[in-house]
């Protein structure tokens, strides 16, 4: 039976709570809390991608679009209409869900490469809209002056405060996703991945489940986008380009897409690489990502979470 151990989750939650306290004391890593905010934001997206790609077996190379829709809905509604940021976040998820249903209903009928191409094209279209609808989105210059978040007069106005906010979202999304995976819904998703004819014959409404999981992943990406916009107070389209979609796929491939922990590990490593450790490579950074993706697909098909299993295999021999 698929059961995800509770103890590591508890330990992880404690580590997340303690992290800023430790980072604060060590000057060399005191800005890591800020980076961890972004890790959390990307974790939200990759958790959704993980259940979509790793469990249900549906590929998406367009999730930057939902991240962007969340961010732009929040930005436009707060800056141009002065609507409450939390309401914008909700409206963002509603818009993303609607778009996910419209895009997903026809394209999730496609398989393999074709689904990949459809989602890729979708990502590019949304990216073009962000660039060209200057009246609304500010075009390539982006939008500034997006307000921060506050709750009952408590403003999340520092990296540390925002860190706890973002990671609360991540932990909640993590638990929700685990519940899904361990339920009949998760079983149905894995069944679709393993054999669509058999899943259908056993009463699984395949298109409905594909759309539900696609919408769920879009909602998480959209929430992440809103959190991103309200944290940076500034967005521009280049954040939501095709390369970001691919980076998301690299994150879950590196961590291991058949395991939710893979999403968290992968997001952590790739985010730290791009924000901190890869500056030496400058414009050659892309090559590093390419190399990672190549090495992982060849040597670690189950990602980093598969490593313990490989090591165990060595000892058994």
């Amino acid at each position: 039976m698929l059961r995800i151990a509770k103890l590591p989750i508890a330990i992880f939650a404690v580590l997340i709570i303690l992290f800023p306290w430790v980072a604060r004391e060590i000057p060399a890593i005191d800005h890591y809390t800020d980076i961890m905010v972004f890790v959390g934001i990307y974790c939200l997206i990759t958790l959704g991608l993980c259940i979509l790609m790793g469990y249900a077996g549906q590929i998406s190379i367009g999730h930057a679009a939902f991240f962007g829709i969340g961010a732009y809905v929040s930005a436009i509604l707060t800056v141009r209409f002065g609507i409450n940021p939390w309401a914008c976040m909700l409206i963002g998820t509603a818009v993303s869900s609607a778009v996910a249903v419209l895009v997903g209903a026809p394209s999730l009928k496609l398989k393999g490469h074709y689904l990949a191409m459809a989602t890729l094209a979708f990502g590019i279209v949304i990216f073009i809209i962000f660039n060209e609808e200057i009246e609304w989105t500010g075009g390539p210059d982006g939008m500034s002056g997006i307000p921060g978040l506050s709750l009952f007069g408590f403003a999340f106005d520092s990296a540390e405060k925002y860190y706890y906010l973002v990671w609360s979202f991540v932990i909640l999304a993590f638990i929700f996703t685990i519940n899904i995976i361990q339920s009949g819904t998760g079983r149905a998703l894995r069944a679709i991945h393993a054999s669509e004819p058999a899943a259908g014959a056993m009463g699984v409404n395949i298109s409905k489940y594909k759309i539900i999981v696609f919408v769920y992943s879009a909602v998480l990406a959209s929430l992440a986008g809103s959190l991103y916009a309200h944290y940076l107070n500034f967005i521009n389209p280049s954040t939501f380009d095709l390369f970001f979609s691919i980076k998301l796929v690299i994150m879950i491939a590196l961590g291991g897409m058949h395991n939710l922990w893979g999403a968290i590990i992968g997001s952590g490593i790739i985010t730290f690489l791009s924000y901190e450790w890869l500056h030496y490579f400058e414009e050659f950074e892309v090559i590093v990502y390419g190399a990672i993706l190549l090495l992982v697909t060849v040597f670690l098909p189950n990602g980093l979470v598969g490593v313990p299993g490989i090591v165990k295999g060595w000892f058994r021999r």
């Binding site: 009949g184 819904t185 079983r187 149905a188 069944a191 054999s195 004819p197 056993m202």
Partner: peptide, 25 residues
């Protein structure tokens, strides 16, 4: 054979129950 190979025997049978009992998302 069209079993769900990466699922356990019990999970395969449990998926069969999907037609009659299933929780919502």
């Amino acid at each position: 054979i069209e079993l769900f190979g990466n699922m356990t025997v019990l999970e395969n049978i449990m998926l069969g129950c999907h037609t009659r009992i299933r929780p919502s998302f």
